[in-house]
Amino acid sequence: MIEFNHVSKLYKGVKALDDVSFTVGAGSVTAFLGPNGAGKSTALRILVGLSLATSGAATVFGRAYAELDGPAHRVGTMFDPNAYHPGRTGRETLTLGAMTLGLPRRRVDEVLDLVGLTHRESRRAVKGYSLGMRQRLGVAHALLGRPGVLVLDEPGNGLDPQGMRWMRGLLRGLADSGCAVLLSSHLLHEVEEVADRVVVVGHGRVLAQGTMDELNRGRNLEQTFFDLTAGADRSTA
């Protein structure tokens, strides 16, 4: 359902992405794994048209995101938990999204329940939210239109252990119901438990991809990750 086809991105003379190709199928969780600055966020923004690829193309449902009719109904996205207006309440943030998508107001309550934000919390301004609460708000926002594809940038950041377990359960459940989930992360253990497939990137290039078992070959993911990214590590670059 998601396809990256030889996507490259030159950013101020630097190759932020270099010939990135991979696909994400329905009913699976794919983790986009790599150290900070590897190009994960850039790739996800290109997929949604917030950033433009220098060459190659990224598509969802076989088309550029912007060319889908009402793309946010079909593709739920979360990019940055700090990109919500600090003066708006969580509920108001979701209400604006629901209005844009033409959804009934009760959908706001439904997604609040889905992510475990209480009604009391939802009436507080976002500036008073912890990072974990902002992540929940972001996931709630992504789920508004009941999308078949979810794109989440670092959804595990700032979550406490309970939050982590909740997020894993939510993403697994969505994938099992047929969703295609693409998430980025640098949290290896988090990814190991939830992802069906892993795409490892470093310095803008795909270093390896495959199922957990294919990549690990009996080792744990952390060792695999360090082996793969050793050449792309900042300290050795």
């Binding site: 359902m1 009913g27 009719d69 109904h73 079909r74 844009t100 033409g102 009941r146 999308p147 078949g148």
Partner: peptide, 23 residues
């Protein structure tokens, strides 16, 4: 129908301009 014959893909509708103005 999705590649593996799974769940149907919900259809979207483009947001009309008047709704954007209201938001």
């Amino acid at each position: 129908v999705t590649e593996d014959g799974g769940a149907p893909v919900p259809m979207g509708e483009p947001t009309p301009f008047r709704r954007l103005v209201a938001v």
